[in-house]
Simulated scan of single mutants.
Amino acid sequence: MLRKIWNYIQNLHIDPTADRFERLDAQILNLFAFSIGIVLLVSGFRDLLFGFEGYFLLLFVLGSIFLILFFFTKARQNIMICFIVIELAMLLVFFFSSTSGFENGLSLYYFLLLMTSLFIFNTKKKLKYIIAVFATAFVLFLISHYYDFRIFRIKNAGNLEFSRNQRLFTFLQVFIWFAIFGYFILLKHFTVLELYRKVLRSQNIIANIRTRLDKKDDIDLENLVKMAMNDDIAFIPKIKQSFPGLYENLMHVNPEITSEEFKLCALLKLNFTTKDIAEYNHISIRTVQSRKSRLRKSFGISSDTDLYKWIDTF
């Protein structure tokens, strides 16, 4: 249940055709927009428990606005709106952190917003927004520090139970958010490594194919290999176009060849290893081995025949 909710929040209104990095950025933006609203609402209800009706109304209205904006893609993906939201959040942190001294722990939210800005404004063109956010945080913190974080007054803000509750609540929220940021940092890191490894692997595959297939420079091997790696539905038509006699020759040996068998033969023709086939088709290595065994039976290939050399005869 929680997993479904999480997926709904992070994938709302995200274009499925976008590349993986664009989807990651959009997911972060979704979580940021949604969490701001939740944090404000929860903080409002917490303040209500301690008798701060005015601040409850303020936080409740702001939280509701942010949650409503969460469902509007254009507003959420507008950089200027994101910048204004972060700056307003900075002012909220400035106000509430300057009511009962530094010990209330609310200054931790500055670091959370700074980290958020690094994620949202993550291109060279958006660097000015990051600088503006960092400058705002620095100036507001210096002002609060000068007045010993006691600029504003809130009745009962010095309540010991309220202060302890506030510190714990702040720490938990910041901790959870940094954990989420860490998740996306690692996800992006692993995505970059995976794509880089795919590029290197595709280059090796293409080089091997060109070596094996003499005078085949007219074949669009780059796109062919890319489609195979991405398990693209256009791979089969592309392989038939690139190797026009392959399917007919296989049909001549086995007229009942299945689409699964032909796809496996096509991947073998491109010299994909068992591990490659399993990874790019999102199946286990054992499943690939089973399919190879069925292919041998279907085409009457003996166990001592190398499948890669066999497919090269077509």
Rank of each mutant, 00 (worst) to 15 (best):
F235V: 01
L41D: 00
S293M: 03
S64M: 06
G105Y: 05
N254L: 04
T287Y: 09
T274E: 13
L113H: 11
H252V: 04
L187T: 11
F152G: 04
K198R: 15
G158N: 11
L264R: 06
H189K: 14
H282M: 11
N254D: 04
L295A: 02
F262I: 05
A228W: 00
L186M: 10
D276S: 03
I84D: 03
Y196G: 06
A135T: 15
N7E: 13
Y110T: 03
I79M: 07
V225I: 14
D218F: 10
S302G: 07
L57W: 14
I185K: 08
L268H: 06
Q241A: 09
S303A: 09
L118N: 04
E222S: 14
S163T: 06
D306R: 02
L69I: 01
L88D: 01
T170C: 07
L31R: 13
P244C: 06
F70R: 02
V225N: 02
G182T: 02
L140M: 13
N271H: 05
C82E: 13
F134A: 03
L193Q: 15
S242I: 03
F60L: 08
H13S: 11
R197H: 12
S293T: 10
D306V: 06
I205C: 02
Y183I: 08
K297T: 14
S202E: 06
L12D: 02
S64F: 10
L108S: 09
L268R: 07
R23T: 09
C265E: 05
F34R: 09
I38E: 00
L186E: 13
T99S: 06
K128L: 02
K263N: 15
V42H: 06
V288Y: 08
N159T: 03
E261F: 03
S202W: 00
N165E: 04
E260F: 04
C82D: 08
F83Q: 05
T116D: 08
N249T: 11
D232V: 01
D214I: 15
I219F: 03
I236G: 02
T123F: 02
L69F: 07
R286D: 08
F299N: 12
S259D: 13
S293Y: 04
K215L: 07
L114H: 02
L250E: 01
L246R: 05
F70L: 00
I236W: 11
G245L: 11
S298M: 03
L40K: 12
F111M: 10
D220L: 05
N78G: 01
R3A: 15
G300L: 04
R46D: 05
R153S: 08
H189A: 01
I86Q: 08
L24R: 09
T211V: 07
K124W: 06
L186S: 11
Q27G: 01
N165S: 10
D231P: 00
G245A: 10
S163Q: 15
L295S: 05
F169D: 04
F52H: 13
V174W: 03
Q289A: 09
Y8H: 13
M227Q: 13
D231N: 15
Y109R: 12
L40C: 12
M1Q: 09
R167A: 06
F149M: 04
K125Y: 12
S242V: 01
L187N: 10
S290A: 09
F141A: 03
L108G: 15
G37T: 12
K275H: 06
T313R: 13
S43K: 02
